[in-house]
Write a protein that binds this DNA or RNA. Structure first.
Lengths: 151, 151
DNA sequence: TATTGTTATACTCTATAACTATA
DNA sequence: TATAGTTATAGAGTATAACAATA
């Protein structure tokens, strides 16, 4: 069957990475990303596409480049994401200035965004079982400070 | 030149992802991973290879599969990492039971591990400028709890 | 039957370079 | 000169399936 791959940490092994912030961030991020992918299953949306959808929802008229700068996705990597959302008629592109286009959700896009919000809420709640809302905010903003400088 | 790609968040744009734990983890993890890659430059070691090296250092005789389970790397993806460390004579493989091999560092591997520790310390310190040691531990273990269940 | 190590393969995300066209 | 959008391409990391050898 070949399953039950990695459980967390075999007994008797000393993991010197466990005290490293970067390591903990990678492990936590990977687990949550995998869970988000499952949470979005059936919607044909990858995590980045879902994120872009929600950003357009809250910022109608936003351009691809602005989305990329907001989410940390390079302009070159935004192109196929925007093209996919447009091809599926989830977003509409309106010429803005000849070289850039404003994006906004279509009615189908709005409906899908609502579904994404609901799935994301359930997804996130799975990882915050013992944290109060204020503790959750504290943790989230502490992590935000880690990369705020962008170095 | 085409540089200065993404700064953090353009003004006037509302980012609804900012309060999401999964999003913050991804951004922070990506930034730290990129910085670690730079910190290791010249050593011809990718982050995963460096992690495996440090795990072998602290657990001489460990097998590839155990490394994978400890670090969250699938057995199939450990094979090329172990082969690379072995080909560069950084680790020695000693038959353990016919189907598995115990790994331990060679003198060159030990020396490289020391360098990795030093570079990693500098790297991590860059992201913890305003946290006290106890706050750092608190943040790291809070993140550890996020993925402890493994879901 | 289960585990170790391995190969092949595919997907997601990230990154750079280079090009067109607009500003 | 700089920016927007695009294409091509490469490199990480992650995932599954399948196989041989061993336990």
């Amino acid at each position: 069957m070949d399953s039950a791959e990695h459980a967390s940490a075999p007994a008797g092994i000393i993991n010197p990475l466990e005290e490293r912030l970067g390591y903990q961030l990678r492990r936590a991020s990977t687990v949550m990303q995998a869970d988000l992918t499952k949470a979005l299953s059936g919607l044909s949306l990858r995590p980045h596409e879902a994120s872009a959808l929600l950003l357009i929802e809250k910022n109608p008229g936003i351009t691809q480049s602005e989305i990329g700068r907001s989410l940390g996705i390079k302009r070159a990597n935004m192109a196929p994401i925007a093209a996919m959302l447009s091809n599926r008629h989830l977003v509409e592109r309106s010429r803005f200035d000849g070289r850039s286009q404003g994006l906004r959700l279509s009615p189908e896009g709005e409906a899908l965004a609502h579904t994404v919000h609901k799935r994301m809420n359930v997804h996130e709640a799975r990882f915050l079982p013992e944290l109060s809302p204020s503790e959750r905010v504290a943790l989230t903003s502490a992590i935000a400070k880690v990369w705020a400088d962008e170095d």
